[in-house]
Nucleic acid binder design. Structure first.
Lengths: 130, 130
DNA sequence: GCATTTGCGCAAATGATTTGCGCAACCGGC
DNA sequence: GCCGGTTGCGCAAATCATTTGCGCAAATGC
């Protein structure tokens, strides 16, 4: 029986509750503290790092200079408010949907997008083979 | 006649030369220093900030925790190597192309992508109207 | 009980970006 | 030519977010 870990449990709970879509660390800390008053930033950091390593949550970058975390679920896209930074989930397959449809689905006034593929470049592929 | 600004000019020159696609600040500094030996990080930072404000360059986030800068040109997507961090440009309209086509076009072994829309959320739209 | 493990608060290290300060080079006017 | 104001920029320090070292104290297992 592992010993209880209130902070880590609260972190998982907050993320799973899904009140927000993509949690930044400071947002997570605020929310965790409503459950565990003395919780520390570093503990929250370690908790999400563990959850990420175990595959329970995914880390996503949404271009605001902060790491954000969301429950690990099927692949989807994000939309972030230019003004307040709120991040919401874009339902369905974005590659088929036009931006106007996205706008209809999220209520956002969509004015742009950025798509980033990731993979391994030819040079590194060669390095990895060697 | 404005007084000469070798560092700022070098920054613009390096970005326009297009030897690399998306420049991080430290990469820019390295390259600028081959032209202007004593150049300082903060000067390069101020230069790209100005260029960004004037619309000559765009700042892009590619999920590696660094701000990157590219010449302002038509919209396009990016691909970044998981291993070495190199960023390349994905030609053509990505929304129609499958990942395998991307792989063919860039030589990357593509294993994922992340698409981020940006816009203004309903709450902020209301705030802006008021 | 007692030794050991482990969660986590505290505070400092790291890494990237941003800002304040002030020198000195440059321009224009005289 | 010389002078004064402007401005580019090097230096160093301040932010900001993330990450790590340290050590206490609580909980577990023997």
């Amino acid at each position: 029986m592992p010993r209880p870990s209130p902070v880590s449990d609260a972190v998982r709970g907050v993320i799973d509750a899904g009140q927000r879509h993509a949690w930044a660390l400071d947002e997570l800390l605020d929310s965790v503290r409503t459950h565990v008053p003395g919780a520390d930033y570093s503990t929250v950091f370690r908790a999400v790092t563990m959850l990420e390593r175990s595959g329970e949550v995914n880390r996503v970058e949404v271009g605001d200079g902060k790491a954000r975390y969301e429950p690990n679920q099927e692949h989807h896209e994000h939309i972030r408010c230019r003004d307040c930074g709120q991040v919401a989930q874009v339902p369905g397959c974005v590659l088929l949907a036009a931006e106007s449809e996205i706008a209809g689905a999220t209520g956002f006034q969509v004015d742009g997008h950025s798509l980033l593929f990731s993979g391994v470049c030819p040079i590194c592929q060669r390095k990895n083979d060697g």
